[in-house]
């Protein structure tokens, strides 16, 4: 390590230590525990006692998380759009490669699962995947916020709020429904309605997965004895894992069912001729 690198390293370490100490002093009052574990976990699920004021409206902390995540993602996207995309090269660099991989992954998923109609689908599952992934990782940041009661709450993942999960699950269902009607009219509508349990399953899968992760993390953080080493595995690795899994599952399910409902109907004549042709081939083989 050269002298310059040593100076940079120690400067960063000192800055981090100073920031941590400052944070501890400033947030000392916010992190006082005044509830039992049962109450904490009930609050984590229902958010009945830790409402946050949003322009005079008491809302769950998950909604604030959702707005913060959306704001951060859109800000990042705007910066990338203005400063990075115009400088894209034919042979991509590392960052360009990551962006192309992400977009290409969701675009490919859309075109593979719905080959007939996938332009908007690709963008939708990209947005959903990004939202779920970064929304889930958001709980790692642990942003403190003041509730309407004056107590503090750490902002959870947006989708650990059941309202957020229901919104995304139902929106995905509506998106599939609209795609089905646009592609196949009445047939698409019926095909989508056939999957009537989809919004519920999608919503509660997201809610359950995200909530379980959060509850485990909450449980671990509640006891001092479990607060060493274990949070690294539980808090970071598990969160990362279910962020990836849930983003993939919702994107894949949406693409798959969208592909099914937008698939053009097979004409009876062609089906009959195909059957006839298969029969002839069988006879020839025999």
């Amino acid at each position: 390590m050269s002298k310059k690198q040593k100076i940079i390293f120690w400067t960063i370490v000192s800055a981090v230590v100073v920031l941590l100490i400052t944070g501890i002093i400033l947030t000392n009052g916010l992190y006082e525990r005044d509830a039992s574990i049962q109450e904490s976990m009930q609050d984590a699920i229902l958010h009945e006692n830790d409402k946050i004021d949003l322009f005079g409206l008491p809302v769950n902390p998950g909604l604030i998380s959702a707005y913060l995540v959306t704001g951060a993602i859109l800000l990042f996207a705007a910066i990338v759009r203005i400063f990075v995309i115009p400088r894209f090269k034919r042979i991509p660099g590392k960052f360009q490669l990551v962006l192309e991989q992400a977009v290409g992954f969701f675009g490919g998923m859309a075109s593979n699962n719905s080959p007939h109609r996938n332009n908007v689908l690709g963008a939708y599952i990209f947005a959903a995947g990004v939202y779920i992934f970064f929304g889930t990782l958001f709980e790692l940041v642990g942003v403190p916020w003041q509730t309407v009661n004056g107590t503090s709450v750490t902002l959870p993942a947006p989708l650990s709020d059941i309202n957020g999960a229901i919104a995304l699950g139902c929106l995905s269902y509506v998106f599939i429904l609209v795609g089905g009607i646009a592609a196949n009219k009445g047939r698409g509508l019926l095909r989508t309605l056939k999957e009537f349990s989809l919004p519920i399953s999608m919503s509660f899968r997201l809610f359950g997965a995200l909530l379980s992760g959060m509850l485990v993390t909450e449980l671990v953080y509640y006891y001092l004895a479990l607060s060493f080493v274990l949070p690294v595995i539980v808090g970071v690795l598990f969160t990362l894992m279910h962020a990836v899994v849930q983003a993939y599952v919702l994107a894949m399910l949406t693409a798959l069912i969208y592909g099914e409902v937008t698939e053009p109907p097979v004409k009876k004549e062609s089906a009959r001729s195909h059957k006839k042709q298969t029969k002839t081939q069988t006879e020839v083989t025999l």
Binding site: A66, T70, L74, A77, R81, A123, Y124, A127, V130
Partner: peptide, 12 residues
């Protein structure tokens, strides 16, 4: 989410 979807579609 709709704002996020529209923004990501157009920007990224």
């Amino acid at each position: 989410f709709i704002i996020l979807f529209a923004g990501l579609w157009l920007l990224l």
